[in-house]
Structures are given as structure tokens and as C-alpha cells.
Design a protein around this nucleic acid. Structure first.
Length: 224
DNA sequence: GCATTAACAGCCG
DNA sequence: CGGCTGTTAATGC
């Protein structure tokens, strides 16, 4: 169980809950740390919780039929995911890797189901979130075929600034070019080149150890 | 051509 | 100092 103040800080959806719902959520959540490079879960694991990233950076990836690792999405602090597998009580069908030292919030499955049964606000959040993910999933179909390296990198960055998945987080993010490369399936050097192209087009600003997105709309459409 | 690794100088915190 | 960035050279698919 975590402190009320901490829950409000790490889970934007908790702000809309009623008092009793909030308490229920609070009691059903624990936090856990993962070292850089470690697996939070492997594909096929039965991770019995709904999860949020409270600090750090996580890569969600899977393996294609050809055996190549494919990144589905990066999740930054503030992001919550896994509701699909928790609802269906399925094993996870992807790998979760901590790209840097990371803290995760784990909500007990029974708590998640209780909120699902009892909280209007929580359901509203879930519908919004699932709907947004669906759009992201559809976009993934054209990802490999249509986009060059810079386009894929642009998409991956734009996902980290999705206003539905990360409300009120601002346009600046501390992330190294190596981490951006890991998320985009590129080397650090190639990520550097792509970032400079995007900066030249005024879509973002490259900083030391971070970026600021200047035009999210165009960034998310870049190259496609 | 395009991307990767290795290497290195330079800059920032 | 340690970590990150920008760049180049050599190599691979």
C-alpha cells in the first residue's frame, strides 16, 4: 500500500476517483524497483498486476516471426498499461525491459477488478486509454513498411508525449539519445542523425540529455 | 545506400 | 570526473 499523496503524484487517473475508490486503489498498490537493463516481465509471464511507471523508462517489445526484436512502445513515468491482459487474465504477450533504473507501481488484480466493477471514473479512464491504444496499434501496422528511420524515431517520440496517455506532463522529457535509439530500434549515432533532421524541421529541440517537442502534431505524422 | 560498431574529442552538469 | 553528444572511419547487409 502506498501513501495517498504518492498515489496522486504517480497516477493521474486517481484524481478523478471518489474517496472510497481512491482508498481502495491506495491499499491495492505497491511500488517496486528495477535496475537498468533488467526485465520487468518476459513474454508469457503471468504478471498478476496492472502496472504503472512511476519513475524511469520502460520498453515494451516483442519478437517477430523472423526472430527480430520489435519495440511496440516506450513507456515513461506517468504511464499505465497492461489493462488488457489483466482484464482477460492472460499471460503477457510482450517483454518489459527497464531502459534505466525504474520504479513501477503494481496494482493487485483484485483491486483492479473492484475498480472496474465499482468506479465510473475508473471506467471512463479505461475506455479513453484503450481507445487511444487501439489507434496506436493501428498506426503500428504501417510503421515498418512506410517509415524510414527518422519516421520511426519521430513516432516513438510522439508516443511518449501522447496527451491522453500522459496528461499534463509538458513538452520536455529527459531522455538520452541512446535511450531514444533503444526505443526506435536504432543505434545512438543513427538516433542522433534523425534527431537533428527533426530539429532542422522545427519539430523538436535537442538538448543535453533531453528533448523538447515543439510541434507534436507534425511530429506524430512525420514521414507518413 | 543505409545502418551498425568503434573510437574520440568536446561539452555539460 | 562521468555521462552524453556530435562526428568520422571502417564494415556489413
Amino acid at each position: 500500500m502506498i501513501a495517498a499523496e504518492q498515489l496522486r503524484r504517480i497516477a493521474f487517473w486517481s484524481l478523478d476517483l471518489r474517496e472510497g475508490e481512491f482508498e481502495h486503489a491506495r491499499r491495492g498498490i505497491v511500488e517496486k524497483s528495477f535496475a537498468e537493463g533488467s526485465y520487468i516481465c518476459h513474454r508469457g509471464d503471468r504478471l498478476e498486476s496492472w502496472t504503472g511507471v512511476t519513475a524511469g523508462l520502460v520498453k515494451l517489445s516483442t519478437v517477430s516471426r523472423t526472430g527480430k526484436a520489435v519495440t511496440l512502445a516506450g513507456i515513461r513515468a506517468g504511464g499505465w498499461f497492461g489493462e488488457g491482459t489483466v482484464l482477460k487474465n492472460e499471460p503477457r504477450h510482450y517483454d518489459l525491459v527497464a531502459l534505466r533504473d525504474t520504479r513501477m507501481a503494481l496494482m493487485e488484480r483484485s483491486t483492479f477488478l473492484w475498480l472496474f466493477e465499482n468506479s465510473v471514473a475508473f471506467n471512463r479512464f479505461l475506455v479513453r486509454q484503450l481507445n487511444e491504444r487501439l489507434g496506436q496499434f493501428i498506426a503500428l501496422a504501417e510503421y515498418d513498411r512506410m517509415l524510414d528511420a527518422t519516421g520511426r524515431l519521430a513516432r516513438n517520440i510522439a508516443w511518449l508525449f501522447n496527451p491522453v496517455l500522459y496528461p499534463n506532463l509538458g513538452m520536455q522529457l529527459e531522455i538520452s539519445q541512446e535511450e531514444i535509439g533503444l526505443l526506435s530500434g536504432l543505434s545512438r549515432q543513427a538516433a542522433n542523425k534523425s534527431l537533428q533532421i527533426l530539429e532542422g524541421k522545427g519539430l523538436l529541440r535537442v538538448e543535453h540529455g533531453g528533448i523538447t517537442v515543439l510541434d507534436l502534431e507534425r511530429l506524430s505524422r512525420y514521414g507518413g
